[in-house]
Nucleic acid binder design. Sequence first.
DNA 1: GCCAACGTTGGC
DNA 2: GCCAACGTTGGC
Length: 154
Amino acid sequence: MAYWLMKSEPDVFSIDDLKKVKNELWDGVRNYQARNFMRDEMKPGDQVLFYHSNAKPSGVAGVAKIKKAAVVDPSQFDKKSEYYDPKSNPEDPRWICCEVTYVKKFKTFVGLPELKDNKNLDGMMVIKKGQRLSIQPLDKEHFEEVCKMGGVNV
DNA sequence: GCCAACGTTGGC
DNA sequence: GCCAACGTTGGC
């Protein structure tokens, strides 16, 4: 079992939105590193910290899990989509995504400053300066520590 | 709104 | 293949 942190701007799609719809296709990711994680390393059942980025405040809002991994991203072939990629070949799709399922919203929102203050989270990717990757691998210990901070037992 | 960090593009 | 220019992310 692997652990991930996935970023979403809450103005666009928040943990509450995920709770409402239960499952969501994580399409529109146009970064090769993030794609490779979804294509090669994610497995159904993997656990996810749902991170609110570009938010007031930014931080971890809850827990989700992977429902399906390595799904061909349909938006790359949709001419009306803002994620349309004319250079992607349907015979060999360039962009791969995954589907996530709602698990739990944190009792206590865990803001970025609190993540940075917690010595047990040293080395966690999201607290490093300039870390823009929207899908990040996570240590089990870090996942569990953040859940504890959020008041949730997983 | 600013700007640092970093990914991508394209000229050469 | 290098690297400058440009675009985007995301914290503040």
